[in-house]
Write a protein that binds this DNA or RNA. Structure first.
Lengths: 338, 338
DNA sequence: CTGTTAGCGCTTTCAC
DNA sequence: GTGAAAGCGCTAACAG
């Protein structure tokens, strides 16, 4: 089926292309009479202007690029859910890409988004210094970093206060008063380092022995790590608290603890980070820190739209999310409802 | 930053735009000498052609439209994960949209995808007769339905054999030999009706009383439904099997059963459908039917790319996924590993 | 092999 | 108010 174009409409309505175009974008520049005449034809064919052509001609494309690390990842799911809820109602189309943790892919993706003339970009970058950000900076396209801060005052971002999150957990662990606390890092992303550092800083290490476990990047790594901790740190006999860098890896560890019949939280209590949805539904509902991921996505989307509307790529938007400790059964014997 | 164009490259290299264009798409039509000369300039500015313009001029855009009902939905997450894994490596950009269950939005979204000149569309439609499909049909753009069948021989799809899935569950329930079986529908989508119908058909209703519960569309509906079933069907005293149309709603019911201290599976055994990831991680690991969602996404993406490559919008691709019963603790006292 | 020319579909001056 | 014409950046005949 050949696409019907503005020219076809013009011919049938007996006017020029320009006038049809005006009806589409600036209707009040056209007399009521001709406007109605044209609208009639437009509706007859349920014509919609070709967005590529509009884009080429310099109009906004109503497309927003969203770049995350991984699609099938609970964290990004909630994030994109939040983003989508806003962009959807504002009638933007989402161009979603995943880097699959390949930095080079991030650059390539952003470049392709720019070429696609998206009106703005939301990105959860590898780091605030990645090449993609540099490219973004000089492209002139509005963009906002998510889950990442930047010292550059011109850069906009929405991020959780990970330091405070780590502190909250340390405080909780102090109150639990176990013999030892093991911290399990899950990535070398800046946000993770902040969490862990703050945790270590505020942990009452005169009473609780602090142990740093090797990094566990995937669910399976978490699962496997448990046996190691049993062997090396006797978590099956010494009362232990586990702080795992994110909920999903924590889930892997819980799964294994469960199999080994190590009671949670009596013998080992477990704490995650993120408050992804499964955290409350899983085997042992998980104590964690919420960074309101969904809200984070909404805020970022809202701010981006605002930048686009008011052409404020000069003004920057910065928002720090306040983390919240959520205590569930993995550290508390009292079952608590959500 | 002004976009650098093919004209700039041409001027600096001292050739015509056409030659530059050829270097980009059909390099062997250009002499080695000039090609290298041009490539040098291209690399110098790390120039990439504007995709909108390419699209307008009739080239493939390397964009694929993907339309699902909801982004933050476990089912679609795994589906898009599968789709992305293929499209990613084939260097396609995904244009992901969600209908949020609004049929009108489906049509509107597909139209916008067509206007964006995507090379193909993957859609999990409301129904095989939705307006969006009609539009797709006459657009000439390759497309594949996911989780939906069609009697029209020209329409391509990938779908699970839901009838067989229902039968598998009935068989399992028969073997469980409970006093009553309650089936909880979760939507009026065709696939759901097939599951439920097959279940009812194959259930040994001379020995097990079959009860149809009202529809529960959301997690919370499932949660709330439990009290009703306690009141009306005494599931807390009569040994009962629950077949819930999908895993997520089943999770809602389990959550409530747990609170009411109704033992699973001793008093009430629960069966879901889909085998979403949480199914194995949740409070009581859930017996369910796997429809290999991730694979479904991969297959559909693969087939679509194939259609695009070979211009086979005439040939149709149809694939039925074989469902598999996965028995976990929610119906079996023997804990089983995944 | 390479350059010229004519679109792709729409927006936007600039006249009338 | 409305139309003619130029231009967005690229590709695809058609010549040479």
């Amino acid at each position: 089926m050949k696409q019907i174009t503005i020219a076809d409409i013009a011919k049938e309505a007996g006017v020029s292309k320009a006038t049809v175009s005006r009806v589409l974008s600036k209707p009040n520049l056209v007399s009521e009479k001709t406007r109605e005449k044209i609208l009639l034809v437009i509706n007859k064919y349920s014509f919609t202007p070709n967005t590529l052509a509009q884009g080429l001609a310099g109009m906004p494309t109503k497309n927003i690029g969203v770049m995350v690390d991984e699609l099938a990842n609970d964290y990004y799911i909630e994030l994109t859910g939040g983003i989508d809820s806003i962009l959807f109602q504002e009638n933007y189309t989402v161009q979603l890409m995943s880097t699959r943790w390949i930095p080079e892919r991030e650059l390539q993706g952003v470049r392709s988004m720019i070429l696609n003339r998206v009106d703005g970009i939301l990105i959860s970058p590898v780091s605030a210094e990645s090449d993609a950000i540099t490219l973004l900076k000089k492209s002139g396209i509005p963009y906002i970093l998510i889950n990442c801060t930047s010292s550059d005052p011109e850069v906009s971002y929405v991020c959780c206060d990970n330091h405070e999150g780590g502190r909250l957990i340390a405080e909780h662990v102090n109150s639990l008063g176990r013999e030892q606390a093991i911290v399990v890092p899950v990535s070398d992303h800046k946000t993770l380092i902040e969490r862990v550092d703050a945790f270590c800083k505020y942990l009452d290490s005169t009473h609780i022995r602090l142990i740093k476990a090797p990094i566990a990047r995937h669910y399976q790594d978490g699962y496997n790590l448990v046996s190691l901790l049993v062997d090396q740190n006797a978590i099956d006999t010494k009362k232990t608290t586990l702080f795992v860098g994110n909920d999903y890896i924590a889930m892997g560890m819980i799964s294994r603890l469960f199999e080994l019949n190590i009671p949670i939280p009596e013998q080992v209590s477990v704490i995650g980070f993120d408050d992804i949805r499964i955290a409350s539904l899983c085997r042992v509902p998980l104590t964690t820190v919420s960074q309101s991921i969904h809200t984070m996505g909404r805020l970022a989307a809202l701010a981006l739209i605002n930048m686009i509307r008011h052409n404020q790529d000069n003004l920057s938007y910065r928002h720090i999310i306040d983390p919240q400790l959520i205590i569930r059964e993995s550290t508390s014997l009292v079952p608590c409802k959500d």
